[in-house]
Design a protein around this nucleic acid. Structure first.
Lengths: 211, 211
DNA sequence: ACCTGAACACCGTTCAAGT
DNA sequence: ACCTGAACACCGTTCAAGT
């Protein structure tokens, strides 16, 4: 008699719970098995190995993202899609880390890719340009999310950049002069700023109708 | 009698060699000790733990980057600095991965930060704006490097995005229509394109003298 | 003072054996 | 057919013991 409810879906759900609660570095196949109340080896009947399981975990998280409704001007829609995707990626920080190891991205984001291409086709004349414009924005969003996951908003321990800079006085004059303006980075604000610059640049770069 | 030549520097050098040869995931304290022909525990007399050692490894790699000479127009200099830093980060892919776990970045890049601020001060009126402009570019470079390390140029196994897309026909019409234009991403070209858009945007955004 | 061996508490994964 | 126990080859790190 099979362990009836040990579906791949349930394994992935429980794995995501453990990862979001205790972090990716604390996650192990043995702990997952304990949480499922099952022998560690039983999981290997459903997934080839840990990597295949983490692949499914990343895919499940990405698949939950739904592109926001098509409200407002063209620029507002592009902005909303970019912000929405970035927030989704950052929200599930630990899962985002998985993207650093494999090409698990596209498969879970078909709807988003579709919507992004639709928006970009409004300001481009050829299919190639559409894809190129889309890629500029898409990889900007992913890069920004990876940066945020790596450098922003971590609790406590992070040393303030200002401390490092003020110590570098004599040899690095510009740095010393500007040290006072270096506080904690506001990742959201930085992202909005550069996203708007890119959107404006893409429109100016390939002028079609100006939607 | 101390193990005379087991300086922290030598440990870091050998560690970097192992990491660049066999990858970060194959790296262990025990293998490092074997390469140094020393008892694994001896390394703990020089470094508190593996994390502290990897911190030193990342710092050593970053410290090797030298900002390129100040040749050409302002835009060319900004471009050269951005490209140079990105190439350096990507070149040492495995070390770059370490940036995903801690704020090991700034300490090794003081010269680069200084030069970047100098360049940005030419198009901004206040110290705050200088830092803001610098940050847009700097984090764009880091984000782009993280993306490249995660998604580009890996040998072989990576599945072609086109395969995924063409299968999604009926529900995702824009995707299906553009699938033919999705080939392997040229990370360098994508980076240049978005970097130029950002540089142009920053200049237009905060017009001072147009250097 | 400086180094190490043995041990602890873990990993992912294989495979022969059980039901 | 479906599951598991024991085992293998590893980890990072602690700590009492050696020289």
């Amino acid at each position: 008699m099979p362990t009836l409810d040990l579906t791949p879906d349930r394994i992935v759900t429980v794995a995501r719970g453990l990862i979001s609660e205790h972090g990716l570095s604390d996650f192990s196949m043995r702990k997952l098995a304990a949480a499922l109340d099952v022998n560690p080896m039983t999981i290997y009947l459903r997934f080839d190995n840990k990597d295949a399981l983490l692949d499914a975990v990343a895919r499940a998280s990405l698949a939950e993202f739904k592109a926001p409704p098509a409200d407002g001007t063209w620029s507002e829609q592009v902005r909303a899609l970019a912000i929405g995707l970035r927030n989704h990626l950052i929200h599930d920080r630990e899962t985002l880390r998985l993207l650093n190891d494999a090409d698990r991205l596209s498969a879970g984001l078909l709807g988003t890719l579709d919507r992004g291409l639709e928006l970009m086709s409004a300001i481009t004349s050829t299919g190639e340009d559409t894809v190129a414009a889309f890629r500029v924005l898409f990889w900007h969003v992913v890069g920004s999310a990876l940066v945020s996951a790596a450098f922003d908003d971590f609790p406590g321990s992070r040393s303030d950049i200002g401390d490092i800079l003020t110590g570098a006085g004599t040899t690095h004059t510009h740095l010393a002069a500007h040290a006072v303006h270096f506080g904690r980075v506001d990742g959201d604000e930085l992202f909005l700023r550069s996203t708007d610059l890119l959107i404006a640049g893409l429109r100016a770069d390939t002028p079609k109708d100006n939607p």
